[in-house]
Structures are given as C-alpha cells and as structure tokens.
Amino acid sequence: MKVKKDEKKVYQIGETAVITSDMYDFDYQVTVNDFKLVREVDGVKIEDYISGAIDEDRFAVINVTIKNISDEAYVPNEMFSANFSKQGDDGGHTSEDQFFY
C-alpha cells in the first residue's frame, strides 16, 4: 500500500508498525495483538473512573507488543504513554500508569 506524504498508514490488529520515536530518535516495533472496549477492567468499573459515565463510555483495553529494534536500551513504560483518540482529534489523554502493563 502506497501512503501519500501527508497520510498516515492505518494498521490492522496483528500487523506490525515500525515507529521512530520523535522524542528519543530511535526505532521500535509495535504490534496490536488485541483490542476491546469494556465497562470494567480488573475490577474497576468505568463509573468508578469517570464521574457521570454514560452507557456509551468504555475503557479501551489494548494488548500490544513493543519490540526494541534499535541499539538503545529502554524500558517501554518509562518512555511511552498510551494515547487514544478519534482520527483528526488531538492525541487524547495520557494513560494512567496503573493501567499500563
């Protein structure tokens, strides 16, 4: 698939993306293994996290594999934060570390 300069490639579950960190300038691979929207994660209900949550509110639970393909050593959860948003929106809110495993 040829991607125009101003377009972003969209990856499917199971496909691996090679990403260059814009903050740290090294390459790594990310593969989304599974994705689901749920109202409860590890016993925490969406209502416990969002005051006034409505029926449509959900946690995004995403299982990813991050592989270091650079010469730099790093611990992923110390260098990355998960962001989630609709296409065209800003990057979303930084994830809560307690939910980033």
Score class of each variant (00 low, 15 high):
Val10Glu: 09
Tyr11Ala: 00
Thr16Ala: 04
Val32Ile: 13
Phe84Ser: 02
Ala73His: 03
Lys45Asn: 15
Lys2Trp: 13
Ala17Ile: 00
Phe59Leu: 13
Tyr101Val: 09
Glu72Ala: 10
Glu56Asp: 15
Ala60Arg: 03
Gln29Arg: 04
Pro76Thr: 07
Phe59Cys: 05
Asp42Ala: 13
Ile66Met: 01
Ile50Asn: 00
Lys67Pro: 01
Ser70Trp: 05
Glu78Ile: 00
Phe84Trp: 15
Phe59Ser: 10
Tyr101Ser: 12
Lys67Leu: 06
Tyr24Gly: 03
Tyr49Ser: 01
Lys2Arg: 11
Val75Ile: 15
Asp71Ser: 15
Ala53Pro: 02
Val32Leu: 09
Thr65Met: 04
Asp97Ala: 11
Gln29Met: 13
Tyr11Ser: 00
Ile62Asp: 05
Gln87Arg: 14
Val3Gly: 04
Val75Pro: 01
Lys67Gly: 04
Gly14Val: 10
Gly43Val: 06
Ile50Thr: 05
Ile62Gly: 02
Asn68Gln: 08
Phe35Ser: 13
Ala60Glu: 04
Asn68Met: 08
Thr94Gly: 14
Glu56Gly: 14
Lys45Trp: 08
Gln87Asn: 11
Ser70Cys: 08
Phe26Val: 08
Lys86Ile: 07
Tyr11Gly: 02
Asn68Glu: 08
Asp48Ile: 15
Val44Thr: 14
Val10Ser: 09
Asp97Ile: 11
Thr31Val: 11
Ile66Gly: 00
Gly91Phe: 06
Ala53Cys: 08
Met23Trp: 04
Asp57Met: 11
Val61Lys: 09
Asp71Leu: 13
Gly92Glu: 11
Lys86Trp: 08
Lys8Thr: 11
Gly88Glu: 12
Lys9Arg: 12
Asp6His: 12
Glu72Gly: 02
Val3Met: 09
Gly92Tyr: 07
Val64Thr: 12
Asp27Val: 01
Asp97Cys: 02
Gln12Val: 03
Met1His: 13
Lys67Ser: 13
Glu40Met: 12
Thr16Met: 02
Asp55Tyr: 12
Thr20Arg: 05
Asp22Arg: 01
Asn68Gly: 08
Met23Gly: 06
Glu78Trp: 07
Met1Thr: 14
Val75Ser: 09
Tyr24Ser: 03
Tyr28Trp: 11
Tyr28Ser: 00
Gly52Trp: 02
Phe84Asp: 05
Glu40Leu: 13
Ala53Gln: 04
Lys67Ile: 10
Arg58Ser: 12
